[in-house]
């Protein structure tokens, strides 16, 4: 296999400009299949903007995004999800007034093939697929130890479980690449340690490529294999985690002179 084929995500010369502000400037990044890749940087460096471009919320001003050999630059969010990118959000975005189970079933939406008419007329395929989806969703919830709360409203879950549910919902769309936006935000050290286990587990169990944004250096050092550091929208450093985290420029960017 050549080098190119093993790449899950390739970002080339990615730029986005909001008026006079270059939020992300000439970013290059390659994530290998099955890799745990970290995107770090001080507040306002443009990390979430990169995620928003990868998932189609923003259209890049220039540059290309290639997922598993397919060019997905500038496609609509729903299209990009169908190509295989799923994400979680920095400020949790669950379907709050729906049950935990239904949240995951919305993630399974595109896997359900019955039509509008079959759903309204309750034809056999509706029952067959709904039952299969219930089982599949419950299985996913079991992985995240949420199956006990599946009838509850998503908004009634404690914070840590809401984070987990968001990951479960993203996984339900059967992605190739999972983007996690600050998964450890607001978690205590114990919860973070558990989250690290979960992320590793997801990678191994689902054979997933994971790209994550994080401020918690313990988590980053603990699970990320490679890193890209952003500062003011530009790449500051890139490479193997242990080397990047000891880079003088990175330490300066985080802690100041």
């Amino acid at each position: 296999m050549s080098e190119k084929e093993t790449m899950m995500l390739e970002v080339k010369n990615l730029c986005i400009q909001f008026g006079g502000l270059k939020a992300v400037d000439n970013l290059n990044m390659s994530v290998k299949k099955g890799q745990l890749y970290g995107l770090i940087g001080p507040n306002g460096a443009g990390k979430t903007t990169v995620f928003n471009m990868l998932t189609g919320v923003y259209k890049p001003t220039s540059g290309t995004i290639t997922l598993d050999g397919e060019n997905i630059t500038g496609k609509a969010p729903a299209e990009i999800n169908k190509h295989g990118i799923a994400r979680t959000f920095q400020n949790i975005r669950l379907f709050k007034n729906m049950s935990v189970l239904d949240n995951v079933k919305v993630g399974l939406h595109n896997a359900q093939k019955y039509t509008f008419i079959e759903g309204v007329l309750r034809l056999p395929r509706y029952f067959k697929e709904e039952k299969a989806m219930d089982e599949k969703a419950t299985e996913l919830l079991k992985v995240f130890e949420l199956d006990g709360e599946k009838e509850q409203l998503a908004s009634n879950l404690p914070y840590g479980k809401q984070r987990k549910l968001e990951i479960a919902r993203a996984l339900a769309t059967n992605p190739k690449l999972l983007l996690l936006d600050e998964p450890a935000a607001g978690m205590n050290p114990n919860e973070t340690a558990e989250l690290m286990k979960t992320i590793r587990f997801v990678r191994d169990e689902f054979d997933m490529t994971i790209l994550l944004i994080e401020h918690d250096m313990k988590l980053v050092a603990g699970i990320c294999e490679e890193l890209t550091v952003l500062n003011f929208g530009q790449e500051l450093a890139k490479g193997v985690t242990s080397e990047v985290l000891n880079d003088k420029r990175v330490i300066t960017a985080y802690l100041g002179e």
């Binding site: 189609g56 609509a76 999800n81 959000f89 975005r93 729906m98 239904d102 919305v106 019955y114 759903g119």
Partner: peptide, 30 residues
Amino acid sequence: VLMNFIDSKSGRACMSIRDNFIAAQSVGIN
């Protein structure tokens, strides 16, 4: 018809859009 619509994938899709527009798009809802 309305009840069956709501309790099917179409209804769930509508409710997900109501609850969070951006998240609904991110899981591939048209």
